[in-house]
């Protein structure tokens, strides 16, 4: 464990059961309501409130409706530009995915520590991002085999492959295809974890240097603090970009299944 004084930058990722639900279980599997689950519920709830505000269905939209329609329109354009008109039926899934991840990332960045709460980013756990990645990958597999049957395997043999290269290329493409759920899930997990660790390490510098001596506090501590401000802004950007990358890659993979090539 990376330690900086008494401040453990990894502690923010610790999962703790809440409300005494430690031993809640279904069929022998523990389903304790944890701080992670709390933030999942919060993300779902905030998303629900956001979309409900856009349900007025007015011809001339208000600001809120405009914002919600902008997001759905954004996902619609993403799918249409990547998949074509056939991508419209994936709007509900990709919208849910994008907004859920986006809100999870942003809620985890809220400075709730200032009022004594412990913000938690469940997208920094590969158990969560892995489930989302496997869902996206499953949709690709199901749609691919549903639409194209065994012909879906032709995805692994690009056009114009020389006969000699078909077999090796098939396995290379197969590996690159099978790696997709891992890269999809791990990319999000790593990006969120790295950003949060960096912020906490810098925060540890600020606290420890200020405690050590005023001179260190004003030099190292102040520099770290300024850096934290910049990195916090960067983290907001990363939160949006990672959600976008997840949705974009999902739609690119769906395109493979929908249109083969």
């Amino acid at each position: 464990m990376a330690e900086s004084g008494k401040i453990d930058p990894m502690h923010q990722f610790a999962i703790e059961p809440l409300f005494g639900t430690d031993h809640l279980s279904i069929g022998g599997f523990n389903i304790a309501f944890t701080n992670s689950a709390l933030y999942m519920v919060a993300a779902a709830l905030v998303l629900w409130i956001f979309v409900v505000g856009g349900m007025k269905r007015e011809l001339v939209p208000g600001r809120w409706q405009m914002a919600v329609e902008y997001m759905t329109g954004f996902i619609k354009n993403l799918l249409i530009s990547n998949v074509g008109e056939g991508g419209r039926k994936y709007i509900p899934y990709v919208f849910s995915l994008f907004m859920f991840i986006l809100l999870a990332n942003l809620l985890g960045l809220l400075p709730l520590g200032l009022i004594g709460m412990h913000p938690f980013t469940f997208t920094s756990h590969f158990t969560a991002t892995g489930v989302l990645a496997i869902m996206s990958f499953s949709i690709v597999l199901i749609v691919g085999f549903w639409k194209h049957g065994l012909h879906f395997f032709s995805l692994f043999v690009p056009h114009g492959t020389p006969a000699l290269m078909v077999v090796p290329l098939f396995f290379i493409e197969l590996v690159s295809f099978m790696v997709r759920p891992f890269s999809l899930g791990l990319r999000l997990f790593v990006a969120m974890t790295a950003g949060h660790v960096l912020l906490k390490v810098l925060a540890g510098f600020v606290i420890n240097s200020a405690n050590a001596s005023p001179a260190l506090g004003l030099t190292v501590g102040f520099a770290s603090f300024v850096l934290m401000i910049g990195i916090s802004a960067l983290e907001v950007l990363v939160a949006v970009i990672q959600a976008y990358v997840f949705a974009l890659l999902t739609s690119v993979y769906i395109n493979d299944a929908e249109n083969l090539h």
């Binding site: 389903i31 689950a37 519920v41 998303l47 269905r57 509900p92 899934y93 919208f95 849910s96 489930v131």
Partner: peptide, 29 residues
């Protein structure tokens, strides 16, 4: 924690997908 994480993620994302994604987004769009 894996079972709790997966359970709550499926539950919340299921709510997001079925209620918001399938129920509300098509109307907005």
């Amino acid at each position: 924690t894996y079972s709790s994480q997966i359970f709550w993620l499926l539950l919340t994302f299921g709510f997001v997908f079925f209620v918001i994604g399938l129920g509300m987004v098509p109307k907005v769009q």
